[in-house]
Simulated assay, not measured.
Amino acid sequence: MKTSIGITPKNLLEVSKVLNVLLADEHILYIKTRKAHWNIEGKDFLTMHNFFEDQYKQIETIIDELAERIRTIGHYAVGSLTEFLELTHLSEKSNSKTDSATFMKILLEDHESIIIHIREQLDKVGEDLKDEGTNDFLTGLLKAHEKMAWMLRAHL
């Protein structure tokens, strides 16, 4: 059934494109955070192992909420690794070091990149595309990433 929520079909399509890019970014960040959780070594192993687990669980929730928001506005969420890699603006930067500082710096860069990207989308989604519901949703994502970035930054 067609979505009729007071936003033009063209605008809903554009909003879904914005959200699918974020969905791709979140998946890349999720995998990189899981990698840190799995591969962390050092004197702070247990603390950081648990810290990264907490962060990937938060990202997992964000992923589900993003996909559901895309469906709420009448479009489909991307769901393949190929699509994620095509849409993301993050890199799969690999690192050979397995210490907490290295992992945290890489993840912090990604959170900050997502924060900047979300900020760049707020006026477009709210003002240009007239979707205040998604704009509010994006503001919540922004705050979640700011907090996760703060937690990473506080450890460095």
Rank of each mutant, 00 (worst) to 15 (best):
T47Q: 15
T8A: 12
N95S: 08
K97A: 09
L107F: 09
H89F: 15
L23G: 12
K124Q: 04
N95D: 05
K2M: 10
E26G: 06
D123P: 01
E112R: 12
W38N: 09
I62S: 03
F52P: 03
L142T: 04
I73L: 14
L142V: 07
A144T: 07
L142A: 10
T72K: 15
I31V: 13
R71A: 12
T98P: 01
E65C: 03
A154T: 02
M1N: 05
S80P: 02
S80M: 09
K105G: 03
L108E: 00
I106T: 06
K57Y: 00
H27D: 05
E65A: 13
E92T: 12
L29D: 07
H49D: 08
Y56E: 04
E112G: 00
L129N: 01
H117P: 02
E109T: 11
K93L: 14
G42F: 11
L23P: 09
H155A: 08
L85M: 13
E41N: 06
R71E: 11
R153N: 06
E132L: 15
K97G: 03
P9L: 09
K124A: 04
F51Q: 07
K97T: 05
D110M: 15
I106H: 00
E92G: 15
S113C: 07
D54S: 12
S16R: 07
H75L: 14
S113A: 15
E146L: 14
N95V: 08
Y30R: 09
S80L: 13
R34I: 03
E65S: 15
L129P: 00
K93S: 11
K93G: 04
L85C: 06
L108C: 01
I116V: 15
V78C: 10
T102I: 06
E14V: 04
V125Y: 07
I115W: 08
L138F: 14
I114F: 02
M48Q: 06
F45R: 10
L122S: 00
I106D: 08
I115R: 02
D131W: 14
R34W: 13
E112H: 02
A24E: 07
M151R: 08
E14L: 14
I31C: 12
L141Q: 15
H27V: 05
K57D: 00
E86I: 06
N20Q: 08
E26S: 11
K32I: 08
D123L: 12
L90K: 08
W150L: 09
I7L: 11
P9S: 10
I106E: 07
L107N: 06
W150P: 05
L29I: 14
I28R: 06
T3M: 10
A36G: 00
T47P: 00
T102W: 14
H111I: 02
Y76F: 09
L85H: 01
M151K: 13
E68L: 12
G140C: 09
M148Q: 13
I59H: 04
E60T: 03
I73K: 06
L87F: 09
G42E: 04
N50A: 07
I116M: 11
L108Y: 00
L12A: 01
L156Y: 05
R34D: 00
L66V: 14
I118N: 01
F45H: 13
T72W: 07
L12D: 01
